[in-house]
C-alpha cells in the first residue's frame, strides 16, 4: 500500500507540508528531525528524531534513508537544505526523484518547472519508492487532523564530514521564502550600504522581507542568501516589489507565484514590465521614498 513519509527538518516546516500531503491524498507519517511538528498535519504518526542540530548531508541522509524503509513516497519542502540531503537519500535508496513539484496529477505524475520556468514538464514515476521535494506555494494548507501518535526514533548523527562553522544571518526580518511582502533590489543599488538603507529600510517600513538579484549578490551589494530566482530562493508573497530589476528569465523563475508583482524601473522597455501586474517607470531612488511617504499619510 502507498504511504508517504513527510520529512520535516524543523518543526516549523509542518504548516508547509500539510497542504502537499493532503493534495497527494495518501495516508502519511511525519518524521521530525529537530523539534516537534508545530501544527497538526493530519499525519497518523509523528516520528520524533530529537536531534538538537542538523548534521551534514552524509550523516543526515543515512538517517533519513533508514527511517524511510517501507514508505512509497518520501517528501520534503523544497529549499537548499532539502535539495542537499533528499537527493542523497534517493541515491541511497536507489530511488527516482522529482525536484520542485508544483502540482500533483496523481501519486505517480507530477508537474515541475524546467529551464528556469520557461517550460513545465510532467514527470512520470516508474518505480517505488520515489523521493519528492515540493514548492509549498501551490498547495493550500490541509485541514488539521487529530494529534498524531508520537514515536521516538533513533537518529545517528555521525558521518565523515566535519562542520567547522556556520553562519545564520537574517536578523529580525521575516523569512524570505514565506514572507507576505518581499521587496527586492538589483544592480543599480550600487553598494551594500545603499542597498540596506534603500531596500532594507523600505522592507522594515512595510514589515516585508528583502530579496536581491544575482547581479546584486555577485557585485557584493547583497548577501547570497537573499538571491531570488532559478538558482536562488523561490518566493510566493502576496506582494513582490522589484526595484531596479530588469526581469531576466532566471530572476522571474523565482517570483512567478507572487500574487501581485510591482516593477519600478527607469527604463520603460525593461522586460520586467511584461510580467509585472503594475509597472512604474521611475527612478527607484525617488519612487521608494515617495511610496513610504504616501503610506505614512
Amino acid at each position: 500500500m502507498s504511504k508517504l513519509l513527510l520529512v520535516l527538518f524543523t518543526g516549523s516546516e509542518s504548516s508547509l507540508g500539510s497542504g502537499f500531503a493532503a493534495a497527494l491524498g495518501l495516508s502519511f507519517d511525519v518524521l521530525t528531525l529537530t523539534g516537534h511538528a508545530e501544527t497538526n498535519t493530519g499525519a497518523e504518526k509523528e516520528l520524533v528524531a530529537g536531534l538538537t542540530s542538523l548534521p551534514p548531508a552524509d550523516a543526515l541522509a543515512s538517517t533519513i534513508a533508514t527511517l524511510s524503509q517501507g514508505y512509497t513516497h518520501i517528501a520534503a519542502t523544497s529549499n537548499m537544505r532539502s535539495k542537499d540531503v533528499m537527493a542523497r537519500v534517493a541515491g541511497i535508496l536507489d530511488a527516482g526523484m522529482v525536484t520542485d513539484v508544483t502540482l500533483i496529477e496523481s501519486p505517480t505524475r507530477f508537474k515541475r518547472p524546467v529551464l528556469a520556468g520557461s517550460i513545465i514538464s510532467i514527470v512520470e514515476v516508474l518505480s517505488t519508492p520515489v523521493v519528492l521535494t515540493f514548492r509549498p506555494a501551490g498547495f493550500a494548507k490541509g485541514e488539521a487532523g487529530g494529534a498524531p501518535d508520537q514515536v521516538s526514533v533513533s537518529a545517528d548523527a555521525s558521518g565523515k564530514t566535519v562542520r567547522i562553522s556556520q553562519s545564520v544571518r537574517g536578523g529580525a526580518r521575516p523569512d524570505l521564502s514565506q514572507a507576505k511582502i518581499v521587496i527586492s533590489g538589483g544592480r543599480p543599488l550600487r553598494d551594500a550600504e545603499t542597498f540596506e538603507r534603500v531596500i532594507g529600510g523600505f522592507a522594515d517600513k512595510v514589515g516585508g522581507a528583502v530579496g536581491a538579484t544575482r547581479a546584486a549578490v555577485d557585485s557584493g551589494i547583497a548577501p547570497n542568501e537573499l538571491q531570488v530566482g532559478q538558482t536562488g530562493k523561490i518566493v510566493a508573497p502576496d506582494l513582490y516589489i522589484a526595484a531596479g530589476i530588469s526581469g531576466s528569465t532566471q530572476h522571474m523563475a523565482g517570483i512567478k507565484d507572487s500574487k501581485i508583482i510591482v516593477a519600478i524601473n527607469k527604463d520603460p522597455d525593461a522586460p520586467i514590465f511584461e510580467s509585472a501586474d503594475y509597472g512604474l517607470v521611475a527612478d527607484l531612488f525617488d519612487a521608494l521614498p515617495a511610496i513610504e511617504r504616501a503610506l505614512g499619510s
Partner: peptide, 25 residues
Amino acid sequence: KTRPVFFESPPPRAAGKKVSSVDEL
C-alpha cells in the same frame, strides 16, 4: 525510474498595466 512525458508552456500571467504615479500605485 522517472521520465518526463510531456512539456508545456507555463500558464501566462495576466497582462499588467503601467501606473503613472506613485499615488496611483
